[in-house]
Amino acid sequence: MSLTPTEEAIAEIWTELFGVTEVGSEDDFFAFGGNSLTAIKFLARVEERFGVDALLPETLYEDARVASLAKAIDQATASATT
């Protein structure tokens, strides 16, 4: 299944953070071994790419699947530009 551009971007960050090679849209940040510290790094990289407040920690801790995170980022960036 192909990933959306935002999902691709998340997958790329996870590849760097976790040293994994494949990330699917249903994969979960915490199942990959993510913790409070990798969350801080991940959020920093998301903000670098998509702007401040693109993804809030609360959202990550609620549902950490790639697809859900990408959706949240898309919504935040859409509302930030309108």
Partner: peptide, 8 residues
Amino acid sequence: PDGFVRLS
């Protein structure tokens, strides 16, 4: 101020 740390 927040429960979670964000670097920004």
